[in-house]
Amino acid sequence: MNATTSARTYHRLFIFFLIGPAFLILFAVVLYPFLYNIVVSFSNMSLRHIRDWSIVGPLQYVKVFTEESQPDFYVIFFKTIVWTVVNVLFHVVIGVFLALILNQKEIRGRWLFRTLLILPWAVPQYIVALTWRGMFNFEYGSINLLITQYLGLSAVEWLKSPTEAFIACIITNVWLGFPFMMIIALGALQSIPHELYEAAEIDGASWWHKLRHITLPMIRPVMIPAITLGTVWTFNNLNIVWLVSNAGEPSDNTHILVSFVYKAAFNLYRFGYAAALSMVIFVILLVFSLLFMRRTRATEAAA
């Protein structure tokens, strides 16, 4: 072994020891559970077969798509799409809107507004969800007091009716989610060179034209990955639906796919079924992310 080979080997070993710990952690907390989940999804693991489970083929996947359950898989899937689209839409629109306002240098005390607007994000989700649940109470909740006393409308049965309960969950999550998009958009806005706006002003561009042709295209490379991330998070956001609707109330009508998985796994111990449903969710999100990133060319723009 000559000196060059020895140095190269040493260099490779050095790299290996640098990435080794990270690889092992990733293997332990991501790769191994993921692979194990795939195996379980093809098994009959359940309350009665927790130790003696065996591989039963794609049976659990067939059940996911064909089993008559209450609530029905397709209904929950549709609700999950509505939940995700509405939430992310409001997160982005409100977030970008507030970022545009906070980016105006004329506004005094911007740091104060920024701090206040980040608060929803800083409070633990558990506290937020339970506080909002109290606020949605029919007789004593502040939302209905506001509606009846100041708007003169009749009180809404937020937590008793399926649609209203679902809307209550969405309102809570919109409140919780916009600060993330606002912070991302604000960061992107601050990186836009001011010269571009000056040049546009010289050319006589209006506010709308500047927004459309400078601001939005310039923040797009940052917002697309944030939207992708936000979509995946929202699609899989168990806490809000579970806590605001108190585990799917009323009558299991406010589930999204991930809360349904949780219930199947930990209320009814249907681990095989829950693993299969988790894989379905994974594939849905994977396909969405790939298509979205490709259509928007987000990775190209970021590169």
Partner: peptide
């Protein structure tokens, strides 16, 4: 919850509970 929410009568709720319990027990013990 449906009875208190007004979407089912007591009889309908009782029937639905029984049917759902049988389904869930079957699923649980599969």
């Amino acid at each position: 919850q449906a009875v208190l929410g007004g979407s089912l009568t007591p009889q309908e709720a009782a029937d639905a509970m029984q049917a759902l319990a049988l389904t869930k027990i079957r699923e649980m013990n599969e």
